[in-house]
Write a protein that binds this DNA or RNA. Sequence first.
DNA 1: TAGATTGTTAATCGATTAACAATC
DNA 2: TAGATTGTTAATCGATTAACAATC
Lengths: 209, 209
Amino acid sequence: MKKDNISDAVIRRLPRYYRQLNELFNRGIIRISSHSLGEEMNITASQIRQDFSCFGEFGQQGYGYNVEELRSEIGHILGVDNNHHLIMIGVGNLGHALLQNFPFSQTGFAVDAAFDVSPIVIGTTIHGVPVYSMNDLDGFIREHPVDVVVLTIPQSIAQETASHLISLGIQGFWNFTNMELNSSKPEVKFENIHFADSLLTLSYRIANR
Amino acid sequence: MKKDNISDAVIRRLPRYYRQLNELFNRGIIRISSHSLGEEMNITASQIRQDFSCFGEFGQQGYGYNVEELRSEIGHILGVDNNHHLIMIGVGNLGHALLQNFPFSQTGFAVDAAFDVSPIVIGTTIHGVPVYSMNDLDGFIREHPVDVVVLTIPQSIAQETASHLISLGIQGFWNFTNMELNSSKPEVKFENIHFADSLLTLSYRIANR
DNA sequence: TAGATTGTTAATCGATTAACAATC
DNA sequence: TAGATTGTTAATCGATTAACAATC
């Protein structure tokens, strides 16, 4: 039975399911049971069925799940067919790396523009994405739909930039500043990539083996 | 009372505590109670005290915690004073970005070398780190202590590279390949930065607001 | 001392796992 | 049909929160 409140733990497993199902699909696998999927992913069959049942009934008794269908259902739940629009602020090394290597379109995002203060990058095009001056940012946002802003900027200007963007109506942030950002508006979502937290976790685990 | 089995949830909170305590320290704050720390971090005071009590008794009744002392205790638990040694494999855009911007030393890691197949980068030095040919990798590992390998390489060679490194004795991986890597040896630790999973999580949350 | 706050035990809450009737 | 596997309910487990005696 569909659930209203999906826990964070379930949400964080969805991309993993999606990844695994894509792989199964590419391997040409047609159907899979919760049991075999669980074996591949180190998750119990019970949990898999519980997770899916939050969103609907995607399987068939005695058969299991059709890989292609389940993959597209989970993709749909994740919003990969929503054609979300994204811009990037801060085109340093990391911004560059993301623009050139990250498969935004496979994730359902169109990267419409990037912004920076450096004259060296302003006016260039990186992997098809035009880089504009920060001066053009407000105007761009007023004239284009923007669902997510990627923050690849220095910590020192992170919170003020975010606050300004929120005042312009931005509600989604992919935050690479390794800094906690806040908003009083609950509809504003921050997804953080905390490199340092991640490496420190690894440090802990090798130090306490 | 010290605990033996620390849950993953607790471990993942440790870097956040460490980050917050560093900030408090830099702001010149001398002491803090679990209650105020909780307010700043959106964590209950109970949970903070429970978390710390897994590792020892760092506070004082009626006083709270000394910021500098607690910060150094948590840093110690995380292993930031262990002088871990790290090398990077794959010096593309992302590897470059990490070498140039990520504060490895603040996290307790010395970056001793980087390796790549491209003649363009081999022989160069990036932010003080020498880049060697992949041909020199095995020799380097035999002659130097290496605690962690950063994998910033293409997915297609990720698992085989990891397996080879494990056979050479490597037990810690910081994995940027957006791919699940596995080892049969339980002492081998993988810490993953899954960019795509992260962005898909955000996609879900803006799609289901 | 009186007030504050810890460390820890007990209670609650939520997430995971097990079990099983329904059914393909 | 018989076997397999789902979706869901119930049981278990673990993590979070509340309460409080100890004590600085």
